[in-house]
Amino acid sequence: MLTQLVRINLLFFSVMIMLSCEQVVDFDYQAERKICLNCILNPDSTVRVDLYYTRTLDETGEFEPVTNATLEFFENGEPWGTANPVSEGNYQLDKKPLEGKTYAVKCTAPGNLPLTAETTVQEKPDVTYVVRSKEKSKGWQAGQTGESTHFYNLLVDYRLNDQPGNDFYWNYEIFWYTPYQKYNFVHHVSYISPYIDDFNRVVEPESKNGFYYYYYARLTDVGVNESQLEFSKDTDTRVIDIFFNADEHYDRYMKSSVQSWLIEEWDDLPFKEPVQIYSNIENGTGIFGSASFNYLSFRNE
């Protein structure tokens, strides 16, 4: 009887496996077409705005630029200027925003409801550092240009003096990429600090500390407002260490963008909550935010 039962069920299992199915789904994407306004105000730069139409996921090619829009800016409620088109979909206002001031944008494009948004420019991060130790690198090879040099590995102690109010600090690194005379992102940020929001932590047992942060470290002052945030990390003399203080909108946009990417690329199974990219654009999408930067260079250390 038992043998009979096993035989019957083995047959049934075989049938089940043969009939299991994976198939490509033809989605009927019906996302509304909206104007996407992207603009990050930076006290060190003039204002640049990108204005394009969104597209559904099954559309390909370039994004269609919005070419006939009027972009008005306001500073603390007063008219501040109008951005001019510099190329298709790109607009520019030759003014630099100031820390602590609130800016608004109104975008009018024929056939669309006016897009509006507002941001307050944060103070620059007040970061100081002390190099605790340095060690000459070994075995570093010359670049493609034949340039031969060396660099130092550094252990650096940081002090970030937090300012009143909510601050949203981000830290990333770039290094000089000699062959192309360009900077390159350091894809991994790896250090331990109690102030890091580890939403983008990736476990990698072979990396230092057993994990790293994907592209950015987001530092939060929740619970330690107006304190001195102290931490240490390993870096080297090739690196430019960048801290910026984002406003709430840009912070949420950044975080949701990184989260979305992490899910898209690394999590095939539907066990993470999907991410809606944050937008503060009324009647449209995109981001109107601000960020104030502090660049630390260790080239002369």
């Binding site: 559904t56 360009k182 992102f185 990417w261 930067f293």
Partner: peptide
Amino acid sequence: VSDAEMPGIMPPGMQESVWSDLPEW
């Protein structure tokens, strides 16, 4: 389900200066 695409934006000042195989996002 993501059904819309929009242009992303690089951190200010970085748009022209970075060379990399940056991720699509």
